[in-house]
Simulated scan of single mutants.
Amino acid sequence: MPSTTSFSAALLIGGFAGRVAHAYTQVNVASPFMYKNIDPIVFPGQYNKSHLHSFYGSDAVTASTTTSAQLQAGCTNVENPNDLSVYWTPTLLYQNGESWDPVPVVRFSAYYSLGDNKAEVPIPQNLQMVAGLSSATTADAMPTEAHIEWFCENSEGGPADENGFPSSTCATHLQQLLYFPNCVNVDTLETGYKAGEPGNYKACPTGMKAMPQLRFSIRYDLRKVVPNGWSGTAPVKLACGNAFCTHGDFINGWTEDAAQNMVETTSTKTKFAAVNGGLGSDGEKPTCTSADADPDHGTSDYAESVAAMSKRSIPAFGWTSRNRMARTY
């Protein structure tokens, strides 16, 4: 079991339960297809309000995207042709000379839990969801239902530093886990979490039905960009600030037949269940090349995104400057 840097006892318990093997399906993405300072859920149509995000999935996404049909007209870099959803997170950054650049992503995985009992409904078309809170600057301010964790995969990472990241070098990857709501009102598209926690969920809120639960698992590789490692404060920050502000966004782009097939697979208790559909089979590599659908608006540069928000520095959001680096491997 890797050393966790969860932010509270409740999150630690949720993290351990979240890594117990349950029935699930997943889609994998090798890397983001785009970095951009847009957020079509929180700041629709705007290019000067959002921090920098890393985008995975359908490249049809723009600052104004609202529907599954819009995403389904695009090209996806997900390894399942039936999944034209778009997934995004605040970009993780490291200092490269005078600039802050994105930390390489080894793999982004979107897991869909098929776990405690069979889902009642598929993930609806046009569903939008957010997990986590971008304005959080402390562990206490984080939504506990998202069961967020940062930890070193397969190695010790020490306790969390003042920013919520591991306080010593990760021998392999820095990993993040993040859980989305697993209940939905199919008429209003309002979402919520079941009572309980991963591995021991109970009932949905009144008026909602259970759907497959989305979970992000993101693996970052710091070994090349921070070759000397660190001891103390991790030399990284999120575009929104420290680790406590992390969050995930999702607009559903699964084809309707594949989304329904996902429900049917939730009746199994095997460790993995493939979700196929009319566009192909699970695991098929992308056959198209993703590109920014709106290259004339917004920016992929962190400094430009900060300037667009009229913010002088992200540390104002809670990130604390790193300590002296020390080689640890």
Rank of each mutant, 00 (worst) to 15 (best):
D161K: 01
K311P: 01
L214H: 14
D161W: 02
V61C: 02
K36W: 10
T188M: 10
A73T: 13
I38K: 02
T137Q: 06
T138K: 00
A171K: 09
D221P: 13
E156H: 08
K202G: 08
T265C: 02
Y24M: 07
D59M: 03
D294G: 01
K237Y: 04
D83T: 00
G18V: 11
A307H: 05
N37C: 02
M34E: 09
T5S: 12
P198Q: 12
E162Y: 02
A110G: 06
T172V: 01
H53W: 05
A9W: 15
L93T: 05
A243K: 01
A30G: 10
A274Q: 07
V236D: 09
V27I: 15
Y56R: 06
A21L: 15
L127E: 03
R324N: 15
N261V: 08
F151E: 04
G196P: 02
Y35S: 03
L71M: 08
W319D: 12
S113Q: 09
N163T: 00
S231Y: 10
A259W: 06
V106W: 07
S167R: 03
A160N: 05
V42W: 01
K271R: 11
P44D: 02
N252L: 12
F216Q: 12
W319A: 14
D187N: 15
T66H: 05
S167C: 06
C75S: 03
G74D: 08
N28F: 07
Y179E: 07
T188I: 13
P286A: 13
R219G: 03
G157K: 00
N228G: 13
K194C: 09
A258W: 05
T172K: 07
N261A: 12
G283W: 03
